[in-house]
Design a protein around this nucleic acid. Structure first.
Lengths: 236, 236
DNA sequence: AAAATGTTACGGTTACCGTCGAAGCATCAG
DNA sequence: CTGATGCTTCGACGGTAACCGTAACATTTT
């Protein structure tokens, strides 16, 4: 029953408070150095190094050494989804403690941030509402899809699905979407291939920008205009 | 940072080998007594009692006392999805140990079994392939949907979606599907609302039956006929 | 070369948690 | 009422692992 022992092993790795803090910090999809991760975990560098080594050999993390730094990131989207699902359970009805005061307290984080590879916060939720309201995307609790009109719409703003839709040889329909329930807004936003593409394109097109290396993002003036004109979204 | 502490708490609960075995046993969606769970975990009754109490207060399990028995089940489908996602990571590329000998060794389990609330094993995969091949369902890695033809098809075999499709007031499209990667077949099968409905209907209609209280199911003669005529599926 | 920074390795201490024995309640059978 | 079964609580034991000293190694900068 090998799968069982590794199951407990993986879960136990995520069960340590320090390692949990590291994983949570890596949920923005970026790669962090061991020192930064040691800081967020509240432990010394030696301790953090041991944790990172264990999580790397277990397949949770992948490292890329660059000069004298070693950048650690989540190994795959599967790991990100696992962390999400644990957060989902942790934020569930079982968390009686501090019923409404949950979520990031930083205003910038609440406004807009990245969630592994897509956008979250009020911006992410607003964009999701916009594309759902305009009929470009349909969302349910189990999954989501892009309508034919949505394919045209995303194409018009520079996101091409032709590369994404060639899966398994034949066209794999327009199911490229996954709802991701955020714990600050308590509303679903768009994850999956579309969410990742939209987030990447927003960075590339200069609509949003990272705030000094955190997972929070700011909306550029150009982004303000595009989000209002193309999506009808205005925040603040 | 309450959500973080509970995050590690939840993960640590799943990280103990004994508790992991219990959760794994409960993945068939049925309710088990404390004694049965103590047996599958390989611990004494006292130890199991403590584990069950902790997991219940944490919101992972829900209990229903019936006479002098206490039946434990997974608290929600969120918990089941969390367990699935951990299995997904545990079965990932990181599991070098016993590369191909994974999966349930029991022949009955490999053939057909329940996975929380839907069907898995060769039967589950075959049914998924059938409805995908006939164009009734479209599956991708991120989600799935039922086509208009699929709605008619499932209606013709006794599964009505009208109750499922009234979500949030307006019609919530036909996204009721979620792929679930099984660790014995390494192929996706159909979970989500459709998977649950199909599984429940198969039991109700007498197409399948539980094998003496395990998560393995047998295909009745009636089921053999229905699966062949309606889905074109023949196993064995 | 030498200093500085980032990362890993080793030993010893400490605290936590899983485990079981024994005993205490609840429920059912006779 | 008496005995039996299922489950839980209490207390004590033991092992595991997180943690931080100190120290070594690697890389970059001066």
């Amino acid at each position: 029953m090998t799968s069982l022992s590794t199951f407990a092993e993986i879960a136990a790795l995520a069960g340590d408070p320090g390692r949990a803090a590291m994983l949570r910090a890596l949920m923005d999809g970026r790669a962090l150095t061991a020192s930064e991760l040691a800081y967020v975990a509240g432990v010394t560098a030696q301790t953090a190094s041991g944790h990172l080594a264990r999580m790397t050999t277990a397949g949770l993390l992948s490292v890329a050494k660059q000069g004298r730094h070693r950048y650690h990131r989540l190994a795959s989207s599967d790991v990100a989804q696992m962390i999400e699902s644990i957060m989902q359970v942790a934020s569930g009805p079982g968390s009686k403690r501090s019923p409404l005061a949950v979520g990031p307290k930083d205003a910038a984080l609440r406004l807009a941030r990245t969630c592994y590879d897509h956008l979250a916060g009020r911006l992410g939720v607003a964009l999701a509402d916009a594309v759902v309201g305009s009929g470009h995307v349909e969302l349910a609790t189990d999954g989501g899809l892009v309508t034919d009109a949505g394919v045209d719409f995303f194409g018009s703003i520079g996101i091409d699905f032709s590369a994404l839709m060639t899966r398994d040889g034949k066209r794999s329909s327009r199911i490229l979407c996954r709802p991701c329930l955020d714990w600050s807004e308590r509303r679903p936003h768009i994850a999956g291939s579309i969410g990742a593409a939209l987030c990447a394109h927003s960075f590339a097109a200069g609509w949003i920008d990272r705030i000094n290396g955190t997972r929070a993002v700011m909306i550029t003036p150009k982004g303000q205009r595009v989000f209002l004109e193309q999506f009808g979204v205005q925040l603040g």
